[in-house]
Simulated scan of single mutants.
Amino acid sequence: MIHTRYLLVFLILSTLLMGCDVTKSAKDQALFKKIDDIHTQVKNEEWDDALDNVDKWEDTYEKRLWKMQLLGEQADYEGINLEITLLKERLKRQNERQAIDSIIQLKHYLSAIYDF
Rank of each mutant, 00 (worst) to 15 (best):
N81F: 03
K34M: 13
S14Q: 06
I80T: 04
I35Y: 01
D28K: 06
S111R: 14
L31V: 03
V54E: 00
V42N: 02
L31Q: 03
S25N: 05
T60E: 12
L51K: 07
D37K: 09
Y114R: 06
D21Y: 15
I104Q: 15
N95S: 14
G19K: 01
H108K: 14
D21E: 08
D52I: 15
I113R: 01
L71G: 02
W66L: 07
S111H: 14
I2Q: 06
R93H: 12
L16D: 05
L13N: 04
D52Q: 12
S102R: 02
D52K: 15
E58Y: 13
A30D: 12
M1F: 11
E58A: 08
T60S: 15
K56M: 09
V54L: 04
L31A: 05
W57S: 02
L8G: 03
Q94F: 05
V54H: 00
Y114H: 09
F116G: 10
Q41K: 14
Q98L: 15
I103Q: 01
L87W: 00
R5G: 08
Q98S: 13
K43V: 12
G79L: 04
N44T: 10
I104M: 13
E62I: 07
K88A: 06
K27A: 14
Q69H: 06
L87K: 00
W66S: 14
E83M: 08
A50Y: 00
E96W: 10
Y61K: 01
D49C: 03
K88W: 08
F32R: 00
R64G: 02
T85D: 13
A99P: 03
E96N: 10
S111N: 15
Y6G: 04
E96Q: 15
E45K: 13
L70G: 06
K34R: 11
A75G: 05
E73M: 10
L7N: 10
I80M: 07
R90E: 10
K107D: 10
V54A: 01
I103V: 14
K33S: 15
L11K: 06
L71N: 03
K92H: 08
T4W: 12
I84R: 02
D21A: 11
Q74V: 05
I113S: 00
D76H: 11
E78I: 06
A99F: 03
K107G: 04
E62R: 12
C20P: 05
Y109V: 01
E62T: 09
Q29V: 09
L51C: 03
Q29C: 06
K63W: 05
H3L: 12
D76A: 07
L17W: 06
Q105E: 11
L8K: 11
A30C: 05
I80P: 00
L31M: 09
E83F: 02
K33W: 09
V22W: 11
G72C: 05
S102Y: 02
T15L: 15
Q29Y: 07
Q29N: 11
W57N: 02
E46C: 04
G19Y: 02
L86C: 08
K56L: 13
